[in-house]
């Protein structure tokens, strides 16, 4: 079996995503165990320097596809480049972050090289030439332990689960360029434009801290209170489906079985009852804080810490105190 691990280092606007740093770090750890090397792939426009800098997380070699035509993500185009990197590196495993792009690209690659992806894994282990992964299924109610029978194994990693390595800035990665083997016209689909929502807050799936609101928030305007708490903590703001269905927050901020799966260090649930479908999206958070006026709300069973009380009283007080602490710290 090959002892190379190939990892897709997702970037946006020349900056590595946090989940990509985690994936590269994990690739290096697995490669070390195999006595092999971690190779990375960077795709985009003006990303050569970024590719070299991946050495700091342990990439020995980085395949770079650097071209203005690659500035926007294309399922088809990016998958073809990644497949070329797979052909050159002949890895045992291909790792990608389980971000929107990482998942889409992993599935695209699987279509091209005719294999399956183990999506959104929380544990990866190589033993006796076999890759064994763990992935939550049935909304996290059970975990599936899966063994690959064919290599390369394609695996996406749940953000915030695999630790990021301490960077060694002096270490540079070797680079190998992958030329564009298609023109824009050859692509079956390409994004014409990216309509970004401008926000200074971290992305929900990558955030270390999330403050979420549910039906108990009583109205869209009251989310300002959660935003204030979130900004004090550098957190993202999420919502329950009840809040989304009421039109208080857009669906992309919904946490749960039919929303996003998040795994932050701290999840603060405000006015959320804790329905199974909500828990499905956030129960792998490291610490959960529940603020709810109903002492019997199921969220308290999932929570590490709770405050029983009116969130309109608790949330502002919490924001005030956090501001004090974090400003003096």
């Amino acid at each position: 079996m090959s002892n190379t691990i190939l990892v897709f280092a997702e970037q946006r606007a020349g900056k590595l995503k946090k989940s990509a740093i985690e994936a590269v770090s994990e690739a290096k750890r697995q490669a070390d165990k195999l006595g092999g090397q971690a190779f990375a792939v960077v795709i985009g426009n003006d990303v050569q320097a970024l590719a070299e800098s991946l050495g700091q997380y342990g990439a020995a070699r980085t395949f770079v596809a650097d071209n203005p035509a690659l500035a926007n993500y294309s399922s088809d185009g990016y998958a073809r480049i990644l497949a070329e990197a797979v052909r050159r590196a002949e890895p045992a495993v291909v790792l990608l972050p389980a971000s929107a792009m990482g998942k889409d690209l992993a599935a695209g690659l699987a279509g091209l090289i005719k294999t399956s992806v183990a999506m959104d894994c929380v544990e990866v282990a190589l033993a006796d030439g076999k890759l064994v992964v763990k992935r939550p299924v049935y909304a996290g109610k059970v975990t599936a332990v899966c063994t690959f029978r064919r290599m390369p194994a394609i695996v996406t990693l749940r953000p915030n689960v695999f630790p990021a390595a301490q960077p060694e800035p002096a270490r540079k990665s070797e680079t190998e360029s992958i030329p564009l083997m298609f023109t824009a016209a050859d692509l079956k689909s390409a994004a014409r434009e990216l309509m970004a929502v401008v926000t200074k807050r971290p992305e929900l799936t990558e955030a270390g801290v999330i403050v979420s609101g549910g039906r108990g928030m009583k109205g869209a305007e009251n989310f300002a209170m959660l935003e204030e708490l979130a900004d004090a903590l550098g957190a993202a703001v999420g919502a329950s489906r009840a809040a989304v269905d009421s039109g208080w927050r857009p669906h992309e901020f919904q946490v749960g079985q039919t929303g996003k799966t998040v795994s932050p260090t701290l999840y603060i649930a405000c006015g959320i009852s804790g329905a199974v479908q909500h828990l499905a999206g956030m129960s792998s958070s490291k610490f959960i804080v529940a603020i709810n006026k109903d002492p019997d709300a199921p969220i308290f069973k999932a929570a590490s810490y709770g405050i029983v009380g009116d969130l309109f009283e608790v949330v502002p007080a919490l924001a005030r105190e956090f501001k004090k602490i974090l400003q003096t710290a």
Binding site: A118, V142, A144, R150
Partner: peptide, 11 residues
Amino acid sequence: PVFEVEKLEYP
């Protein structure tokens, strides 16, 4: 199969 579910576990 490419991969098999070896077993299911409770979290």
